[in-house]
Design a protein around this nucleic acid. Structure first.
Length: 906
RNA sequence: GGGCGGUUAGCUCAGUUGGUCAGAGCACCUCGCUUACACCGAGGCUGUCGGGGGUUCGAGUCCCUCACCGCCCACCA
C-alpha cells in the first residue's frame, strides 16, 4: 500500500448489497484473477493451483447447486492465491446439446415454431441467439457470487478450441480402434428424437399390465399353426409381438423340454419362429416362457445374438409402428398396444392380464418412455479407457474425496459398457465422419473435412457427413486440456496440466469425471487432476430435491438479495461435509448474515477504540512485547490457535471445519472474551499511552488475521473491512492478494492461566444468577488465588470486575479470607471467590441449596473417577498420560468437594 | 438383487486416527439498552449418540446383526 495508508471509514450498519456492489469491480480492475495478472502477487516459481470446474449448462439461470460449486471452488482458489501460488480457475459454459435443445424447443413452441418448422439452419441460428442471452445472465450471476475466475480465459464448449479438440481426439480414437461405428441396441427417446446414453435413462417404478398371450405351435405335419397346441408367454409390451423372432424357455424346464426346437407362429405378422432354450429365462416368472424381441429389448437382444436370431425393428423415430408392423403401421406405440390386445382377445389368444409392478426407463430430459431400438451409431470402446482410469485411482495418481466414492467408481468402471456417442440432434459438435456412396467411412480431423474417401479415393463432393452430433459429455470430457490449447503443445498445457482439484457434485461422477479421466489418460498420458472433490446435493429445507416441477427452487440471487453473497456462501459451506447432501434453509442463511454483521461491528468497535495517541492514518505495527498484559497475550495466542486450525483444515479442503473454527474463533473467543477484556485497558485513561496502544494493536492484529482467514469463505465483507484497517507498508491494496497468515505464536502457559480466570468469571456469573442477585447490582467479593496465579489475577482484577460486576479484593496467597456470613462461594479450578451480596436471607438459603447441588454433582464425578483409578486394569493398561490426567482430575475434584463440605458445615 | 449414505438435544447438523466428545446454531425460559453489534449480551433447559450383540481397561467413535429413511448401480419379460 506504500505511503497510501489512508483507510476507509466504515458505515455504521452492515449492508451487504452496498458492500458487495463495488468490490468485484475493484478486483477486476486490479487484474488479480489470472495466474499471471498484473495485480497478482503470486510467486511464479511455485506450483500452480488449478481448479477444474464443471462448466454450467448454458440453458438458463444458475441454481443453488451451482452456488455451492462456486462457493467451494472460489474458497479453494482464494486460499491458494493468498498462499502466493499462481492460481488458475478457468471458467466456462457448456453447450449442453440435448438439454439446450429441450429448453429451446419449449421456448420456440410458445412462438408457434418447432424444430421441423424452422429447419436445421434456422434452428441453430435461433439457438445462438438464445445462448448469447443466457450467457450474459449467467456470467453476471457468477460475478455476484464472487467467483474469482480468470475471465480472460472463458471457454465455451462450442467454440473453435473445443471443436478442434473434438475432431482431433475422435480421429485419434478412430485410428486406434477405440471409436467404431456399428449397429447396436440404443436407448431411443421418442420425445427428444435421439438416442441417449444408459446414464440418461432413469429407471422409474410404475404399475403396468402383464398380459398372457397364447402362441400357436406349428404342426410339423401340416406346417400350419395348430388350433390346440399352444404356448403361453407373458409380456408388458404386446406391441413388440410384431418384432418377435423366438420364444424362449429354460433348458431344464420339464414343462417345455419337448417343445424346444418346435416352431410357433407369431400372430398378425404370420412369422414362424423357433422355441429356444436359454437359461436367461426365469422359470418362476409368468408361464416360464418368454417371447423374444431382439430389436427392442436389452435381454432379448443378447439372447438373439446368442442364438443368431433375426432382429426385426418395428418402431419408427416417433415411436409409431413402422412398415414391419403390417396392419398396425403408423399407429402410435400405445395405440398399437391397445389394438393388438383387443385383436388377440378377438382371436381368443389373450389368456389374461393383471397389474404388474415394474421399472420402466424414462428420459432424464423429457421424461418420455425410452424405447430400445437398433441403430447404426458411433461408439467408444470403454474397456481399455476404464482400465487406465482404474489404474490411476488405484495407484493414487488421482485421489477421490470423500474416499467412499472410490467404491462407486470401481464398481461402475468394472462393469462399464461401450459409450454410444451419436445423438440425432442438431445442436452440438457434428461427428467428423464422412461416408462415400460405396459405404466407406472416412474420419477426418480437418475443419473442412476430408479431401477424398480414404478407401476408394472418391472426391469430397461425393462424400456425405454423418448428420449426427456428439453426446454433450464428449466435449466436456476433453475440458481439462482442450481449454489449454490441446492438441497444440502449448505453454499453458505444460504449466497447468494436470489440474490440482476437480470439484463437482457426486451426481456427475460418471457423466463427466470418468470421461475426463478417460480422455486425459488417453491423450495426455496422465490423469487430468490430482484430487477429485465431490460435494453433495443442495436440498430444500425438508430434504427434498429441488426441482422446477416441485416449485421448491431457491434462487441464489434472491438469497443474495436477502442476506448477501457472503452469507449465502457461509450458509452453503458451514455445517456440511464433503459428499453429503445438505438442506438449505433461511435459518442457515441468517446465521451467515448474523456472523457477517458480528464481524463488521467488532471491526467497527476496534477502529473506533483507537487511542488518540495513535494517528488515524498510522501504519499498522506489532504491539510492543513489553507492554502486553496477560489479556493481550491470551488474545494473540487464541488468534494463533484459530490460524492453526483453519490453516490445517483449508490444506485438507475441509472447508466446513475451517468455517466453523472461524465462527467460533471470531465470535465465541475474540468478541465474547478478547474484546471485552480489552475494553478495560482501552477505557482506562490513567494508563500510559504505550499500554493502551499495545492493547489496541493486539485487537487490530486479531481482526487483520481473521479477515485474511475468512476471506476465502466471505470475500466481500472481508475485503471491505480490509480497506478500513490500518496496514503495514508491505500489505497490498487488496485483501484478495494479501498473504495467508503464518502460524502465530501460541503461549500455552498464558492460555491456561487466563482460561482459569475466565472460567472463574463464568462461575461467578452463574452463581449470581442462581443466587438471585440482580444482574445490574455491584457487589463485593474476595478472590483467593494460589501463589501461582495470584499475580495474574491481581493484574486482571479490573477485567474480572468488569466482566462479573463485582468489586474484588484479591487475597494474598495463603491468607485466610474474612468470614462473611451469607457469602456466596464459587470455585473454579484453583481459584475461589466469595461474593458478598447485600444481606438477604433468601439469598443465603438459595446459596446453601446450590452448594448442596454442586456437591452432589462433584461427588458423583468423584466416585466415577475413583472407580476408574481403583480399576487395576485401567491403571496398568491405559497409556501413562491418560492415567496421569485421571489422577489430576481426581485430586481436583477431591479438593473441590472438601471445600464445598466445609462451606456447608458453616 | 448388489452397493453406499443417514439415523447424535424440539429443529438443522458438527464430531479427524477409540480415552473431559456428549457439542454448535436455531428454537425455548430468565435477566439485561455495561461507551461494536437486539442481525446483541449474560445465564439456563433438553440427549440411555436408531435397537441388539461383540471387541477393549475404556466406544457416537471399531466389528457383527436388525430396523427405518434416502441415494446409486443392476438384462427379470
Amino acid at each position: 500500500m506504500g505511503d497510501e495508508t489512508a483507510t476507509r471509514e466504515l458505515p455504521k450498519a452492515y449492508a451487504p448489497a452496498d458492500v458487495e456492489s463495488a468490490i468485484y469491480d475493484r478486483w477486476l480492475a486490479a487484474d488479480v484473477f489470472a495466474p499471471d495478472g498484473a495485480g497478482s502477487r503470486a510467486d511464479q516459481s511455485k506450483k500452480p493451483f488449478v481448479i477444474i470446474q464443471p462448466p454450467p449448462n448454458i440453458t438458463g439461470a444458475l441454481h443453488l447447486g451451482h452456488a455451492l460449486t462456486f462457493a467451494i471452488e472460489d474458497a479453494m482458489i482464494r486460499h491458494a492465491r493468498m498462499q502466493g501460488r499462481p492460481t488458475l480457475w478457468l471458467p466456462g459454459l457448456d453447450h449442453a446439446s440435448i438439454a439446450a435443445q429441450y429448453v429451446l424447443d419449449k421456448i420456440i413452441a410458445t412462438e408457434g415454431e418447432s424444430r421441423e418448422s424452422l429447419g436445421r439452419e434456422r434452428y441453430l441460428e435461433r439457438m445462438w441467439r438464445f445462448i448469447n442471452e443466457t450467457r450474459e445472465v449467467m456470467l453476471g450471476q457468477e460475478r455476484r457470487l464472487g467467483a474469482s475466475a480468470d475471465w480472460g480465459r472463458l471457454r465455451f464448449t462450442m467454440d473453435e478450441g473445443s471443436a478442434r479438440a473434438v475432431r482431433v481426439s475422435f480421429k485419434q480414437l478412430y485410428d486406434q480402434g477405440l471409436a467404431y461405428r456399428a449397429e447396436g441396441l440404443i436407448n431411443w427417446c421418442p420425445g427428444c428424437r435421439t438416442s441417449v446414453s444408459d446414464l440418461e435413462v432413469i429407471p422409474t417404478p410404475e404399475t403396468g399390465t402383464l398380459w398372457s398371450i397364447r402362441y400357436h405351435l406349428i404342426d410339423d405335419a401340416t406346417g400350419k399353426p395348430s388350433p390346440t397346441e399352444t404356448i403361453t408367454v407373458a409380456t408388458t409390451r404386446p406391441e413388440t409381438i410384431l418384432g418377435d423372432t423366438a420364444v424362449a424357455v429354460h433348458p431344464e424346464d420339464d414343462r417345455y423340454r419337448t417343445l424346444v426346437g418346435r416352431r410357433v407362429r407369431i400372430p398378425f405378422v404370420d412369422r414362424d419362429v423357433p422355441i429356444i432354450a436359454d437359461d436367461v429365462v426365469d422359470r418362476a416368472f409368468g408361464t416360464g416362457a418368454v417371447k423374444i424381441t431382439p430389436a427392442h429389448d436389452k435381454d432379448d437382444h443378447a439372447t438373439g445374438q446368442r442364438h443368431g436370431l433375426p432382429m426385426i425393428s418395428v418402431l419408427a423415430d416417433d415411436a409409431s409402428i413402422n412398415e414391419a408392423g403390417d396392419g398396425y403401421t403408423g399407429l402410435d406405440r400405445y395405440e398399437a398396444r391397445k389394438r393388438i390386445v383387443a385383436d388377440l382377445d378377438a382371436r381368443g389368444d389373450l389368456v389374461g392380464s393383471k397389474p404388474h409392478e415394474m421399472v420402466i426407463g424414462r428420459c432424464q430430459r423429457s421424461n418420455d418412455v425410452i424405447e430400445p431400438r437398433l441403430k447404426t451409431q458411433w461408439f467408444i470402446r470403454t474397456d481399455p479407457l476404464a482400465a487406465s482410469a482404474l489404474r490411476a485411482t488405484r495407484d493414487g495418481e488421482t485421489r477421490i474425496m470423500p474416499a467412499r466414492f472410490e467404491k462407486v467408481w470401481e464398481n461402475w468402471l468394472t462393469n462399464i459398457h461401450d459409450w454410444n456417442v451419436s445423438r440425432q440432434l442438431w445442436w452440438g459438435h457434428r461427428i467428423p465422419a464422412w461416408y462415400c456412396p460405396d459405404g466407406h467411412v472416412t474420419v477426418s480431423a480437418e475443419i473442412d473435412g476430408p479431401a477424398r474417401c480414404e478407401t476408394c479415393g472418391r472426391a469430397a463432393a461425393e462424400l456425405r457427413q454423418d448428420p449426427d452430433v456428439f453426446d454433450t459429455w464428449y466435449s466436456s470430457g476433453l475440458w481439462p486440456f482442450s481449454t489449454l490449447g490441446w492438441p497444440d503443445r502449448t505453454e499453458d498445457l505444460r504449466r497447468y496440466y494436470p489440474g490440482t482439484v476437480m470439484e463437482t457434485g457426486y451426481d456427475i461422477i460418471f457423466f463427466w469425471v470418468a470421461r475426463m479421466m478417460f480422455t486425459g489418460l488417453q491423450f495426455m498420458d496422465s490423469a487430468p487432476f490430482e484430487t477429485v472433490y465431490l460435494h453433495g446435493m443442495v436440498k430444500d429445507p425438508y430434504g427434498q430435491k429441488m426441482s422446477k416441477s416441485k416449485g421448491n427452487i431457491v434462487d441464489p440471487l434472491e438469497a443474495i438479495d436477502r442476506a448477501g453473497a457472503d452469507a449465502m456462501r457461509f450458509a452453503l459451506l458451514n455445517g456440511t461435509s464433503p459428499g453429503n447432501d445438505q438442506k438449505f434453509s433461511n435459518e442457515r442463511l441468517e446465521d451467515g448474515r448474523n456472523f457477517a454483521n458480528k464481524l463488521w461491528n467488532a471491526t467497527r468497535f476496534v477502529l473506533g477504540a483507537r487511542p488518540t495517541s495513535i494517528a488515524a492514518d498510522a501504519a499498522r505495527r506489532a504491539p510492543d512485547e513489553a507492554d502486553l498484559g496477560p489479556a493481550e497475550r491470551w488474545i494473540r495466542s487464541r488468534v494463533a490457535a484459530t490460524v492453526e486450525v483453519v490453516d490445517k483444515a483449508m490444506g485438507e479442503y475441509q472447508l466446513a471445519e475451517a468455517t466453523r473454527a472461524l465462527y467460533d474463533g471470531i465470535w465465541s473467543e475474540f468478541c465474547d472474551w478478547g474484546v471485552e477484556l480489552a475494553k478495560v485497558r482501552l477505557a482506562d485513561a490513567s494508563l500510559p499511552d504505550a499500554t493502551r496502544q499495545a492493547t489496541w494493536w493486539t485487537l487490530v492484529e486479531g481482526i487483520d488475521t481473521f479477515v485474511r482467514l475468512l476471506h476465502p469463505v466471505m470475500p466481500f465483507i472481508t475485503e471491505a473491512l480490509w480497506a478500513s484497517l490500518p496496514h503495514a507498508t508491505d500489505d497490498p491494496e487488496l485483501l484478495i492478494v494479501a498473504s495467508w497468515p503464518a502460524g502465530g505464536r501460541r503461549d500455552a502457559a498464558i492460555e491456561r492461566d487466563v482460561d482459569a480466570v475466565l472460567e472463574l468469571v463464568r462461575r461467578i456469573r452463574n452463581a449470581r444468577t442462581e443466587a438471585g442477585i440482580e444482574t445490574s447490582a455491584w457487589i463485593d467479593a474476595e478472590v483467593a488465588a494460589p501463589s501461582g496465579l495470584n499475580a495474574l489475577v491481581t493484574e486482571l482484577r479490573p477485567q474480572l470486575e468488569r466482566l462479573t460486576r463485582v468489586k474484588a479484593t484479591i487475597l494474598p496467597p495463603d491468607v485466610a479470607r474474612k468470614d462473611v456470613p451469607g457469602a456466596v462461594s464459587v470455585i473454579a479450578g484453583g481459584l475461589e471467590a466469595y461474593l458478598q451480596p447485600r444481606q438477604d436471607p433468601a439469598v443465603a438459603a438459595r446459596e446453601r441449596e446450590r452448594l448442596a447441588r454442586e456437591l452432589d454433582v462433584i461427588e458423583g464425578r468423584l466416585a466415577s473417577a475413583a472407580g476408574r483409578l481403583a480399576d487395576e486394569a485401567f491403571t496398568s493398561k491405559a497409556p501413562a498420560h491418560v492415567v496421569e490426567g485421571a489422577r489430576r482430575s481426581h485430586a481436583e475434584l477431591e479438593a473441590q468437594a472438601a471445600s464445598l463440605r466445609e462451606k456447608l458445615a458453616e
